[in-house]
Amino acid sequence: MGLTEQIAKLGRSAIELVTGLGRAGLMLWGAIAHRPRLKKGLPLLIKQLYVIGVQSMVIILVSGLFIGMVLALQGYNILVGFGTEESLGPMVALSLLRELGPVVTALLFAGRAGSALTAELALMKSTEQLSSLEMMAVDPLRQIIAPRFWAGVISLPLLALMFTAIGIYGGHIVGVEWKGIDSGAFWSILQSSVEWRQDIVNCMIKSLLFAVVVTWIALYRGYHVIPNPEGISRATTQTVVQSSLAVLALDFLLTAMMFGS
């Protein structure tokens, strides 16, 4: 491939990227920049909260429990060597609140709910359901995209909190029930180490931003899919890959801003 062709290819990729960002921005703007319609919008939102949030709870809770248990076991083995095993509580809690809670929940959410959102929208497009909404003078951005977006934004922070809470409980099972750390020491040191603003609020801010990114990518990939089997498969994969990478990159930026100094 000649140099000119390579430059042309690079230029095409750049144009595609900018076009994609523009389309994604317009889609989101069209979906959320409206006065809320409580009577019509609320039932749609509640349904999506169930599909996106409630139905993701099992995987989040089971994963949170096991990650908390593994974290506690590995942490205990290290801390016991220094005679500081009572610090297991804050170690587990801070690891979960600051990093693992928001990040792992977002990654699981991208795999469970994000891929489902993309596939659902892609199938709606390929079966002309989105076109039929348009022809019925109903805006699919408001009817389909908006409730799913808000459901994702509301669900993910709550799921991250649940993940963190059950992870701490998993740490308690391993540290206190199994390894015999004093329960009072576990909870009191944990309580004194965790700060509301620094840890819990930052955990919520991270989750909220991850929720926006993951849900936005999932909806964009589904809404602008090429409506054939290959296109749908590609869009679903892109949702999981792109949102996972975006979450990890964004996490580094946020961590640097929140805890870097």
């Binding site: 079966t127 002309e128 359901q129 076109s131 039929s132 022809m135 019925m136």
Partner: peptide, 9 residues
């Protein structure tokens, strides 16, 4: 207007 789609939609 109204449209009957090929797939029913």
């Amino acid at each position: 207007m109204s449209m009957l789609f090929q797939s029913g939609a």
